[in-house]
Amino acid sequence: MKAGIVVFPGINRERDMAIALHASTGRAPAMLWHKDADLTGLDLVVIPGGFSYGDYLRCGAMAAQSPAMAAIRAHVARGGYLLGVCNGFQILTEAGLLPGALLRNAGLRFLSMDCHLRVERADTAFTNRYRAGEVFRAPMAHGDGNYFADDATLDRLEGENLVALRYATAEGAVTPDANFNGAARNIAGILSPSLRVMGLMPHPEDLVDPLMGGTDGKPLFDALAALEVA
């Protein structure tokens, strides 16, 4: 599996992502500066977390309009996999590669804490090392992670089974208390209809080492290690 991480100015979790991918795949992913991102031959492209362009205007807005996005769209069009985490998720929604938008957290504060995620769908290239309904823990660190879409879009996402992860209690209950940022229907991560694009707000890449408090995030990267573009 060949992975590449696209780095826009202000992205800052690219090293965390590289560590997690390296640990599961056994090889270092390509680090691709947005101005010269050549995605040929890659199975997986990742847009990691951070504050691309300072999160000025709107989180992810300027990266979503940058020239590198054309290559990323082409990668998806030819069947490549694409993962956006945190700012990467925001960029994917701004670019229209995933529906909805990420609003300011309901409590208006940046939130850096562990959350619990319930796996809504375990038959995808991203989540197949988890079981459906399984709950795993992941750090979150964002000011704008409050997922929003209009009701029709939310109904469609649920109808087409494209919600990948929801905020839940440690026991797996999807409750308002477990939904720290106020996301619509507790949505933490979603999939494209092709199931080849996933975006999520929390950071499983920061929980792949027992020394850092657990390996709850590792199955995601173990799953990615196995994927190959058909």
Binding site: N12, R13, R15, D16, I19, A20, G49, R109, F110, L111, S112, M113, P139, A141, H203, E205, D206, V208, D209, L211, M212, G213
Partner: peptide, 16 residues
């Protein structure tokens, strides 16, 4: 206070 500071970025924070 801590919950407003990103303490895990870098993937090296052994004790938060």
């Amino acid at each position: 206070i801590w919950d407003q500071y990103d303490s895990t970025i870098g993937g090296q924070t052994v004790k938060r």
